[in-house]
């Protein structure tokens, strides 16, 4: 059985995008180790509501690490201390008695704060809309086995496709770059014969949109790869750059 842990929560409160935020300090007593980090916030919120205060606002949904909704900066790391896990997959047993646990929203120019720990990640949708697809209509498609795809290629495409669009990459990057996110989609589709057809157009369009939305560029610090909850490799960024340069040379 897990033991109970007591710690101090320092959590970011901010009414709106233009308003000044501050840290609220909340002591947390005897939290069972098998409580998830978000369940701990639920419990803290329940106490705030019972005291007549407004609860801490944070994004969350599936609570099993796949929807990409949760987005907390815990002790300076997007998605907290674990590697290859989202915030909702962090359990209290990872912390120690007496710790100070600091919780902030994503800090990135591309993701303005809506309230408290909730940010606006609409920019990622816009980048996807710029070209993150294969241009096919519904129906009239050849048989799924018409084009064999070598297993290693399909596996590599799947590695890239595992991105959950949470925004941790841009939040971790000192340049506020969304390159890991963009490169994951560009790679997935460029690797597959179905997506290769418009690979050049896609790379250019998605990168142009990323620049337009105020995300920074990549200087290979690899912070994104280290913090990505799905361990997306920065080799995807190299592939994106190759696709982009090839597309520009062809212009």
């Amino acid at each position: 059985m897990d033991k109970n842990i007591s710690f101090t929560l320092k959590v970011w409160r901010q009414r709106g995008p233009k308003e000044k935020g501050h840290f609220q300090t909340i002591p947390v007593k005897d939290m069972p180790g098998d409580t998830s980090f978000l369940e701990m916030l639920d419990i803290v919120n329940e106490e705030l509501i019972n005291k007549g205060e407004e609860p801490i606002v944070f994004d969350h949904d599936c609570r099993e690490g796949i929807c990409g909704m949760c987005s907390l900066y815990i002790n300076g790391h997007p998605h907290g201390p674990a590697t290859g896990a989202t915030t909702c997959q962090i359990y209290i047993r990872r912390f120690n008695d007496g710790d100070v646990v600091t919780v902030e929203p994503w800090r990135s120019a591309g993701f303005p704060v809506i309230r408290d720990l909730m940010v606006d990640r609409g920019a990622y949708d816009k980048i996807m809309q710029a070209g993150g697809y294969v241009s096919v209509n519904t129906g009239g498609i050849p048989d799924a086995n018409a084009i064999p795809i070598p297993k290693p290629i399909a596996d590599e495409a799947m590695d890239a496709a595992a991105c959950i669009g949470c925004g941790a990459c841009a939040a971790a990057c000192k340049n506020g770059s969304a390159m890991l996110f963009v490169s994951a989609k560009v790679s997935q589709l460029a690797l597959l014969p179905q997506g290769k057809v418009e690979a050049a157009r896609r790379a250019k369009a998605m990168l142009a949109k990323m620049d337009e939305l105020g995300f920074g560029n990549c200087t290979n610090t690899r912070a994104c790869e280290a913090e990505c909850p799905k361990c997306i490799s920065i080799s995807n960024i190299a592939r994106l750059n190759r696709e982009f340069i090839a597309a520009k040379l062809a212009d």
């Binding site: 050849p142 799924a144 070598p150 297993k151 179905q194």
Partner: peptide, 16 residues
């Protein structure tokens, strides 16, 4: 067929 055309990376065998 539709999903493969969209670039869904389904699991494959060594023969592709």
């Amino acid at each position: 067929d539709q999903c493969v055309a969209q670039g869904v990376p389904f699991a494959r065998e060594y023969g592709g």
